[in-house]
């Protein structure tokens, strides 16, 4: 599978990552290597096989809907890179 610079830039945009041109070149080579490695899976016939999302048969787990103590606001905000008036501070989104 050929990986192009366009593909790398498209995927990087989806992943919200920036790369320099040199990093992109390296990524093209790495991704091509990894993708041709995993392409070996094509050898397995799987058209009649069900997908397994999870090894445990997960059912929804319900609990009582009751009010419980949760973290104090200050405790959660302690790790915030920027905060103001008890809120997370972010750049302006709407003009």
């Amino acid at each position: 599978m050929k990986v192009t610079k366009d593909t790398i830039e498209h995927v990087a945009n989806l992943a919200r990552l920036n790369f320099t041109d040199k990093e992109k070149e390296e990524l093209i080579l790495d991704m091509e290597k990894i993708i041709s490695y995993v392409d070996k899976l094509d050898e397995l016939e799987t058209s009649y096989v069900e997908a397994t999302q999870h090894v445990i048969q997960l059912k929804n787990v319900f609990r009582e809907d009751k009010v419980e103590d949760y973290f104090k606001r200050e405790k959660i905000l302690k790790n915030a890179p920027e905060k103001k008036d008890g809120c997370f501070k972010v750049p302006k989104i709407v003009e």
């Binding site: 899976l41 096989v49 397994t52």
Partner: peptide, 13 residues
């Protein structure tokens, strides 16, 4: 890729 891998997961199991 992703769905194929999940099917192979079934085969592994």
């Amino acid at each position: 890729y992703y769905k194929k891998a999940l099917k192979v997961r079934t085969l592994v199991k």
